[in-house]
Amino acid sequence: MNSVTKFQPIIVADVGGTNARFALVTDFDVASLQFTIAHAQTFVSAEFTSLESVLSAYIATLPFSQPTRAALAVAGPMKGQEVNLTNLGWRFTLNALKTEFNFQELKVINDFAAFAYAAPYLKTDQNLPIKHGTAETYSNIAVMGPGTGFGAAALVFNDHQQSVLSCEAGHITLAAVNEFERQLISLIAQEVKHVSVETVFSGSGLERLYRAVATVKQQPVEDYSAARISELALLGQCDICQQTLAQFCDWIGSVAGDLALTFGARGGVFIGGGILPRMQDVLLQSQFADRFMQKGIMSHYVADIPVTLVTQDNIPFIGAAASLIAR
């Protein structure tokens, strides 16, 4: 990017089933790789009938003329020019949206693609290293996150050019690395036909894991929600809940290592989502780093890969903007 050229503002968005968040990126500092974010607004998605209607509402709040660039991160599948926000029933095409709002540049990406694009622009002092290492410059970066679902993506470099690879890694089969985990998987398989990463590390997965841990340990199984399991564990009031969170963090270390190998992520692994940031102490005290590196003859490959827990705000905004300026 030519640093002399005046930066043209970018409308950025993080559109999900609950909220549609918008902001304006007004500048990008090449030296520090930092975006300036302003005019942030949050709208309740259910109060609007379409992406076009909520985008119009945001543009109406801006105290100046509409920018001609936009980059939107959306929680929904994309197929060519078509975007479908399943939980809202919103559908649109990129060409129609670009024409309606007279955008000169428009990028629409899914939320984990935005996370991948954002990775090189994150602030080290606002995020938590959970495994130390040395990232290789211009090497692939993997991102992942357990939350309502389990998402993953990679920022891939080729001759200093970059692109994002989206995937469905949440649906890969969860592997056991010891007898205890084999017993857990056997029990969880009685509830779900396919024991995938997502069935254990997202949504009601923590509840499944708790029930399996309690059963294997021959302890009473209480009707606890995921939030209650975490609360009791963090308060030190339930031994099985504590063991469940520890197992969660240990096991996801293996998954993160698998994804590092799959994507060749010598540039680092970044973990987001809504679950792990709430159990930082458990994660740091767990066997995450050891499990990440237990990859047999390829242990040397992952040994120096750094892993970071992302707690910084505005990742979708940063990633959306980065997707538009990335070359």
Score class of each variant (00 low, 15 high):
114 A>S: 15
321 A>P: 01
177 V>Y: 12
106 L>G: 08
214 A>S: 08
139 S>T: 03
31 A>W: 00
135 A>T: 06
48 F>V: 02
294 Q>H: 07
30 V>R: 14
125 D>A: 13
282 V>P: 04
48 F>R: 03
303 A>S: 11
230 S>G: 09
3 S>N: 06
285 Q>G: 04
306 P>E: 04
73 A>V: 11
165 L>P: 02
43 F>Y: 13
243 Q>I: 12
194 H>E: 14
207 E>L: 12
101 F>E: 00
290 D>L: 09
194 H>C: 08
164 V>L: 13
102 N>H: 14
92 F>C: 01
239 D>V: 15
167 C>E: 05
84 N>R: 09
92 F>K: 03
94 L>A: 15
302 V>E: 05
246 A>T: 13
262 T>K: 14
149 G>T: 14
181 E>H: 08
314 N>C: 00
295 K>I: 05
176 A>M: 07
125 D>Q: 07
137 T>K: 13
258 D>H: 09
39 H>A: 07
11 I>M: 00
311 T>C: 14
168 E>V: 08
155 L>A: 10
234 L>K: 03
153 A>G: 06
40 A>K: 13
82 E>Y: 08
153 A>N: 02
327 R>L: 08
133 G>Y: 04
276 L>I: 12
115 F>Y: 14
146 P>I: 09
327 R>I: 07
78 M>Y: 03
36 T>D: 10
54 V>P: 00
69 R>Y: 04
27 D>V: 11
237 Q>C: 12
148 T>A: 13
307 V>W: 02
153 A>H: 00
112 F>C: 15
97 L>Y: 03
72 L>P: 01
285 Q>D: 06
84 N>W: 03
20 A>K: 00
230 S>I: 03
113 A>N: 05
262 T>G: 11
266 R>A: 15
20 A>M: 08
313 D>M: 06
224 Y>P: 07
74 V>N: 14
53 S>E: 08
54 V>C: 13
144 M>Y: 02
269 V>T: 04
71 A>T: 02
60 A>N: 09
315 I>W: 04
136 E>A: 12
310 V>F: 04
42 T>R: 09
42 T>V: 08
127 N>V: 07
290 D>S: 13
200 V>T: 04
304 D>L: 12
270 F>I: 01
301 Y>C: 09
46 A>I: 01
102 N>G: 13
117 Y>M: 14
